[in-house]
């Protein structure tokens, strides 16, 4: 590493330690799949995985690889390709500490995290079994009005978050486009690891048209270039899902042998794909 900010994908993945509370975005927001492959290759363990607010193939692979001890998510789904088979199996086996959530509670908890406040209130939740099984969520009386019970959830401050984005500049600013949940996630996290499609010589903050959709470098710990780094998932308008690979994963991962076969194939792929 000549520059502390810029790293290889493997070096970047090396900053996710065993036992870390790791936040990752939903499938459409830019999932760092190449970096996830490095995590699996290294055999990371005991993660507290926070899916913002849901997870897909990335979470299912991490669970199948025994990398996850605690899972906090509103859902695990492969979208059109069905539910997460390794997730369902881990639930049956009881090997996961499951913290079922609901999407807005994950976002709100991260917003509390970015503000440095201990908890945040939000509507809904009361009377659901989601709430009943979250001993860390409480109901309080609205201190400003009578007869208004309201749910409060503790802030989430991940040790590290990791995502994939289209572009960064040489100063370490990262363009995230419409995916503003990535900015919230990074604000709340102590470290932020980003893989990108490319690095531009222009300064992204100097460009008024883009600056509002940029995560400033102060939040960013490391950046690595990973061409098509979200594949087999899509990245915005840049590339679509690799449907064949996703379908193959959905089929193979129904059994643990099939999952291992997928993993072997996936881990043997070159870092940079065509």
């Amino acid at each position: 590493m000549t520059n502390k900010m810029f790293a290889t994908v493997a070096e970047l993945a090396g900053c996710v330690h065993n036992g870390s509370k790791l936040a990752v975005p939903k499938d459409l927001s830019g999932v760092a799949m190449q970096a996830t492959r490095e995590l699996v290759r290294r055999g990371v363990r005991d993660l507290h995985l926070v899916c913002v607010p849901t997870g897909g193939i990335q979470a299912d692979i991490l669970i199948g690889s025994d990398a996850v001890r605690t899972l906090e998510t509103s859902a695990i789904s492969l979208g059109e390709f069905g539910s997460g088979p390794r997730f369902a199996e881990a639930i049956r086996a009881g090997t996961l500490m499951m913290r079922d959530a609901t999407c807005p509670a994950v976002y709100a908890a991260l917003q509390a995290g970015e503000k440095g406040i201990p908890f945040i209130a939000l509507r809904g939740l009361i009377g659901s079994d989601v709430m009943k099984h979250r001993s860390d969520w409480k109901v309080i009386d609205n201190p400003f009005a009578a007869n208004d019970p309201i749910a409060v959830v503790p802030a989430i401050q991940p040790d590290v978050c990791m995502f994939h984005a289209p572009l960064a500049d040489r100063s370490g600013n990262v363009f995230v486009g419409r995916q503003r949940e990535l900015i919230t996630m990074a604000h709340a996290s102590r470290e932020t690891l980003v893989t990108v499609e490319a690095i531009t010589n222009a300064n992204l903050i100097d460009d008024d048209a883009r600056a509002g959709a940029v995560l400033p470098a102060i939040y960013v710990s490391h950046i690595a270039v990973a061409k098509r780094g979200a594949q087999p998932l899509a990245l915005g308008n840049l590339y679509p899902d690799d449907e064949a690979t996703l379908a193959r994963y959905a089929m193979l991962s129904r059994t643990s042998d099939g999952f291992r076969q997928f993993l072997e194939e996936w881990l043997s792929q070159d870092l940079v794909e065509a």
Binding site: A75, R92, V130
Partner: peptide
């Protein structure tokens, strides 16, 4: 969420998504 007990559900579905909020 699923059927057959919680958290060790025999049949596990994806999860509640935003329902515990939007329904209200």
């Amino acid at each position: 969420v699923g059927t057959g007990g919680y958290p060790r559900s025999e049949v596990r579905w994806p999860g509640s998504f935003g329902s515990a909020y939007m329904y209200f």
